[in-house]
Design a protein around this nucleic acid. Structure first.
Length: 821
RNA sequence: GGGCGAGUGGCGGAAUUGGUAUACGCGGCGGACUUAAAAUCCGCUGGCCUUAACAGCCUUGAGGGUUCGAGUCCCUCCUCGCCCACCA
């Protein structure tokens, strides 16, 4: 008997599938389409580990299952290859990013192929290919034309190690998302995409996508829409003489306006001088300089709420109160107006500031006893209660009603207006690095920033010998005169090219559309093809993209919709976030820790790709984290080996009129269960059912009670059910069972209810809810008969004998419960 | 501090609408085969009491509640994970 040896069969079928092109998708409208996509990877030089494999396996199981179920499946793969790792590698080794990426994609592709993933490689794309980034540049210009790409000089996050600016989304807790070093602020002129224009739609359209609540709430949180009011204040001196300067603050608590006891502005506040008295300039400026030198992390560590008085006051537009103006580093410059009304009564931070600087505190909402000590930092922040200390007619009202009235009065006087603010900032997309798509803009002294004409795209990234960033805020491209010096497309005069490149997230904001039409040289994609395949039906990836890629891609999609290029507003109908695979000890797998488990190694050890795939899917629910188990890997292999053995030991000898009903029942029960399990993404229980069926087949084989034809049919069915999970062994056994074509293009089995009817029922018998016995009865037994049998059952009788049965509950076909008392 | 999610055997995990808790796998124990081992096949495996079986009692983070019946529903609490975090 031939033993199960994955090394003999897996490479063979991988080659066969590639040659027969069975996974290539065409726009065949006779079948419903299904676009299944995994986030296209960064082809790093490191081997992929079993955590990555889980992601691709989920996608591949869905792709294969849907193909067998009659869908026209698009399952493409490509490379998100611009970005720092390749460039840093180039600096270190002298190998150009282009060469490194080419080597890595070859390696990465081999690893994916080795796992038997059913990608349509004819659609492979590479974001660093000029044929691709030409269209990334084209989209940049579309955004530019629509006023959604603009340049602005301001303080930006700057990573001192990577020597480039970063988007807000790429700063994690004050550290660079790539290298982990602490970021700084630097005043630079940068390119932005105006994602804030889309804040409302990005927030609201989340209602219409099938994403997990956690990702949705992460996005909503990040966008951070809050409705409130903008209030105008007049600057004055201590006696209330106005200086003629006014400024605005933002609040979400209109009801607390009567309780404002100070104003505080951020150190970066642009009009700080206008809010500062002459004799306070020195102190205010020294505080400002100190604050600006601090990194964001250091500033957040200032829990003591430092700050200094500006010497000026502001007049409360609601009640005329004169309150001091401070500068303090706990106020964020980039949110709202950069100036905040302080009310220590109901805000913890303001309370702390008030206590530190001896500012009186005034509460405007009735608070419980334990919060009445105003010298404590314990603040009653609940949003509802009775209004107090605000005068008539407000005192005694519900505070929210009072707030509305206060606002109406101020709005009528022109000192307040409705305002919505967002935590999200515009997306900073320029990078001072070499390895990215050049921003297709030409700077002309006369015409300003001018779009590179379409027919001059792509602006090709020149080949360089050194990629070292200079750190002076300009990219290495600035050192290439033949790249920089050009002529203005408008006036023909001498001009300079933009030397910054685009954030890699620009490339990944539209790649899912390119897969619909990957080789188009006339446009980013053909509208009909996009309409055929998009939106993506199942998008599978980790949660780490929640507020970056997934937000950016959604914005671009909406811009394309506004441009009339596509007819949908959300790119990813269903999003699936797989759980992380951790090392056996529960630690995160990483190359630096040296605890990665690589599929290539497991394949070399003889487990094979199929067993790895089974293990990945069986280890637990697909969307929960799981610890890798070395022993579990053996179990996955053993399971496949048992299936293999069943087919090898199949002999076609005559069995006469053997009764196959048990066999057929087991088989069709499994079909039904596995089908609904995969539909619900319960991959682990689908595999458990396959294991159960296999165990059942071994028992039936030992009993030797089945007809040969039914046995053959069952084995064929098993290969089909196994095919999405373990495609190689399924294909091999399919062939051994003399089936035509490929198991992967075969029709998914359908359960026949005829085989599922049982002739006996098992009914549990409870007394007062406690299990006391079990009945085996014919299906035809009536309720009365079952109750009588239950009562008479030797295990049940002692518990009911001599007691009064007060109630009998019968759940048809399941249980009888006697309530005795 | 805010948001999201999770607590079930020695371990990973199963349990339709509330209806026989612990499927399936790992690990462990025993058996068959073998000169022997590996591999393979078969059986047992939540805890307590019991020589053992039968029977009984207990058990889904803790405590209460609803119900004939709760892992599942409600309330209170505890623990852990992830994300965001001075956003006024």
């Amino acid at each position: 008997m031939q033993r199960y040896n994955p090394k003999d069969i897996e490479p063979k079928w991988q080659q066969q599938w590639a040659e027969s092109k069975i996974y290539e998708a065409t726009e065949d409208a006779t079948k419903p389409k299904k676009y299944i996509l995994e986030y296209f990877p960064y082809p790093s030089g490191a081997a992929m580990h079993v955590g990555h494999v889980r992601n691709y396996t989920i996608g591949d199981v869905l792709a294969r299952f849907n193909r067998q179920r009659g869908y026209n499946v698009l399952h493409p793969m490509g490379w998100d290859a611009f970005g720092l790792p390749a460039e840093n590698y180039a600096i270190k080794t002298g190998i150009s990013p282009r060469q490194a990426i080419d080597q890595n994609t070859t390696k990465f592709k081999a690893q994916l192929t080795q796992m038997g993933f059913s990608y349509d490689w004819s659609r492979e794309i590479d974001s660093t290919d000029p044929a691709y980034y030409r269209w990334t540049q084209w989209f940049f210009l579309m955004l530019f034309r629509r006023g959604l790409a603009y340049q602005q000089e301001s303080l930006q996050w700057w990573c001192p190690v990577d020597k480039t600016v970063l988007a807000n989304e790429q700063v994690e807790n004050g550290h660079c998302w790539r290298c982990g070093s602490e970021v700084e602020k630097k005043a630079l002129k940068q390119w932005f995409f105006k994602i804030t224009d889309y804040a409302d739609r990005l927030s609201e359209d989340l209602d219409n996508v099938n994403w997990s609540d956690s990702i949705k709430s992460m996005q909503r949180n990040w966008i951070g829409r809050s409705n409130g009011a903008e209030i105008s204040w007049q600057v004055c001196d201590k006696e209330g003489h106005e200086t003629g300067v006014s400024f605005d603050t933002f609040t979400t608590r209109k009801d607390t306006i009567p309780g404002v006891t100070f104003i505080v502005v951020a150190p970066e506040y642009e009009r700080l001088d206008e809010l500062t008295a002459d004799d306070h300039h020195a102190r205010v400026h020294s505080y400002r300089q100190d604050a600006l030198r601090l990194t964001d992390v250091q500033r957040q560590e200032d829990k003591a709420k430092s700050g200094v008085f500006t010497g000026r006051y502001a007049k409360n537009p609601f009640n005329g109160d004169i309150v001091p103006i401070y500068i303090a580093n706990y106020v964020l410059a980039g949110y709202g107006t950069g100036a905040v009304m302080g009310m220590g009564g109901h805000d913890e931070r303001d309370r702390e500031f008030s206590l530190r600087h001896d500012i009186p505190v005034k509460i405007t909402t009735e608070v419980p006893e334990e919060y009445q000590d105003l010298s404590s930092t314990k603040v009653w922040a609940a949003k509802q209660g009775k209004q107090i200390n605000s005068g008539a007619p407000y005192d005694g009202m519900e505070n929210l009603d009072a707030g509305r009235l206060i606002f109406e009065k101020m709005a009528a006087a022109g000192t307040a207006r409705d305002k919505t603010n967002y935590k999200m900032r515009d997306w900073l997309i320029s990078r001072q690095r070499y390895w990215g798509a050049p921003i297709p803009i030409i700077h002309c002294e006369k015409d300003g920033p001018v779009a590179v004409p379409d027919d001059q795209l792509p602006v090709v990234l020149p080949e360089l010998d050194t990629f070292e960033p200079s750190g002076d805020g300009r990219s290495p491209l600035a050192r290439v005169p033949e790249f920089v010096n050009t002529t203005c497309p408008k006036c023909g005069g001498p001009a300079e090219r933009e030397t910054d490149t685009m954030d890699g997230f620009a490339c990944s904001s539209w790649y899912f559309l390119r897969f619909a039409d990957p080789h188009n040289n006339d446009q980013p994609f053909d509208a009909d093809k996009a309409k055929f395949w998009l939106p993506v039906d199942d998008y599978i990836g980790g949660a780490e993209h929640a507020v970056m890629h997934l937000l950016y891609a959604r914005m671009w999609t909406k811009v394309m919709y506004d441009e009339g290029m596509i007819d949908f507003v959300e790119p990813f109908t269903t999003l699936r976030n797989q759980g992380m695979i951790l090392a056996p000890d529960g630690a995160k797998m990483s190359k630096s820790k040296g605890n990665t488990i690589e599929p290539g190694v497991l394949i070399d050890q003889g487990y094979g790709a199929d067993a790895i795939r089974i293990m990945e899917m069986f280890i637990g629910p697909w969307n929960q984290a799981a610890n890798w188990s070395v022993e579990g890997m053996g179990g996955a292999y053993r399971f496949l080996q048992r299936v293999w053995t069943l087919v090898q030991e199949f002999t076609d000898r005559e069995r006469g009129e053997a009764d196959s009903s048990e066999l057929l029942r087991a088989c069709h029960k499994a079909i039904k269960k596995i089908t609904s399990d995969i539909e619900a993404l319960n991959f682990n229980t689908a595999i458990a059912s396959l294991m159960e069926l296999t165990n059942e087949l071994f028992k039936l084989k030992a009993a030797d009670n089945y007809a040969a034809a039914a046995w053959q049919d069952t084995l064929v069915t098993v290969t089909q059910l196994l095919a999405p999970f373990a495609p190689h062994i399924a294909e091999e056994l399919w062939q051994q069972l003399n089936q035509d074509g490929s198991v992967h293009t075969s029709d998914w089995p359908v359960a026949n209810d005829r085989y599922l009817v049982d002739d006996t029922l098992r009914v549990a018998v409870q007394v007062n809810g406690k299990l006391r016995g079990e009945l085996q009865v014919a299906v035809s037994t009536t309720e009365d008969e079952i109750v009588a049998l239950a009562q008479a059952d030797p295990k049940v009788a002692p518990h009911v004998a001599g007691k009064q049965i007060r109630k009998t509950v019968y759940v048809p076909g399941r249980l009888v419960n006697f309530v005795v008392g």
